[in-house]
Design a protein around this nucleic acid. Structure first.
Lengths: 236, 236
DNA sequence: AATATAAACCAAAGATAAATTGGTATCCAA
DNA sequence: TTGGATACCAATTTATCTTTGGTTTATATT
């Protein structure tokens, strides 16, 4: 306790010096401040010392840092992983199904209110083509198109965009053994009747009915998927 | 009509030659076929002639092309405008509100099933802070965080990603005169009680109640927005 | 005159290399 | 032991080059 306070705690001085700098200097639009090396020499302190001061301000929540990006004023922006690939990497089939069950019934409800006759006739076309499908791959194509036509029928580009994102993640997610074998879908396939019920409800402007029909359909899909998973686990 | 048919319509021959090539050659996983310059020399025809044949197949929908990418078999993938900026450009406040009303109640329903006590206490924190907000900007911050905490509570990274996308578009969309003036929100602000009802329902694991409380809240927000629009139109 | 061919050029998209930046370890001196 | 300078690392961005479908132009060819 012999040395003067101003010298025993020089880093505090750096903190106040840094605060003054940030207060007077008008930063860029994104609040980015100069790289550590520049700032250190500009303030006439060592980089290590500057970093200590930055640590303090970061702990206070006044700024945030990221390697390769830089140091920024304000609070860290919420990391919105809107990237399809990143989403697919973090997600899994169960999450995809729960998300579909949450989103698509409400999209269907909205579509029942806004669908045009042209939309509905395209849905019917998809239904017919999916019945005639020779391969499972063809069936999947018409099934996907039916669901997207319903999303288009909402006349809401934002809902359509969200649906597309969900769909892209669904395609990108790793399904492993859950994938179906490439045999032709049987006429008794559960989806046929369920799809028809959905389109019927949309055509009758039955919003509640359309939503619940879509929900029932997706829950059946989820159940079939889980049953398949159980069988696969039993075999292995 | 003096020249033999096989010479007067050489491009038809190229089309069939191309069809044969596509049938026998097994393309890459993504259905991409070699660049035009290679393919032309491989088939022994000029690039212009090959392009005519490709035009035919493209018109038939057998393949699709894109500058810088290449030429691909099959139907063009649906252009998924997952890009935030593009979505915001095509959308508008009305669409954003309808999308929120479609999505967020179902997210809330899921959250009521999966939320942890930690999630719920964070929601309560957001509620308290939003009540203490000194400025409208601060209130918005806590309001946004409350809604995102609910989305996080679903424990579904895909649903959270979709919510983030929706939220990003909401921030990016041009609201024009609908934007609120920066005065302090009054204690009687409708959102306070509505937010509380939502969190209460989540805490009691009342899925239906949570969904309907969120729906009621968002519909109030939408109604207030439209009323404001009406007043603005009357003034102008 | 009409058409095909070759070459050159363009803009979009992808692939690769180089530079930047926050984070960390090491060595030296006070 | 502490502080400072240096070197190095991995994440990220930026710049550069290459590839690719689309277009134009000049030149043969018939």
């Amino acid at each position: 306790m012999l040395t003067p306070p101003s010298d025993t705690h020089p880093e505090k001085g750096v903190v106040t010096q840094l605060r003054a700098y940030l207060a007077q200097s008008d930063l860029a639009e994104d609040g980015r401040l100069p790289p550590e090396r520049e700032l250190a020499s500009a303030l006439g302190v060592s980089r290590a010392e500057l970093r200590k001061a930055l640590d303090v301000l970061e702990a206070e929540g006044q700024l945030w840092r990221h390697v390769g990006k830089g140091t920024f004023m304000g609070s860290r922006p919420l990391d919105t992983f809107a990237d399809i690939a990143a989403l697919a990497r973090r997600s899994n089939p169960a999450e995809v199904m729960r998300a579909r069950i949450a989103m698509e019934p409400e999209i269907t409800r909205a579509a029942a209110f806004t669908a045009t006759p042209a939309d509905i006739s395209e849905m019917r076309l998809c239904l017919a083509r999916s019945r005639q499908a020779e391969t499972w791959r063809q069936y999947e194509g018409w099934d996907t198109r039916l669901h997207r036509t319903i999303a288009e029928a909402t006349q809401n580009s934002l809902l359509l965009g969200l649906f597309d994102t969900l769909n892209a993640v669904r395609r990108a997610v790793t399904w492993g053994r859950l994938r179906s074998v490439p045999v032709r879908p049987l006429p008794s396939h559960h989806s046929f009747a369920e799809h028809e019920a959905i389109v019927d409800a949309i055509e009758h402007r039955d919003m509640a009915g359309a939503a619940s029909a879509m929900r029932a359909h997706l829950m059946t899909v989820e159940r079939k998927l889980m049953e398949k998973q159980m069988r696969a686990a039993g075999e292995g």
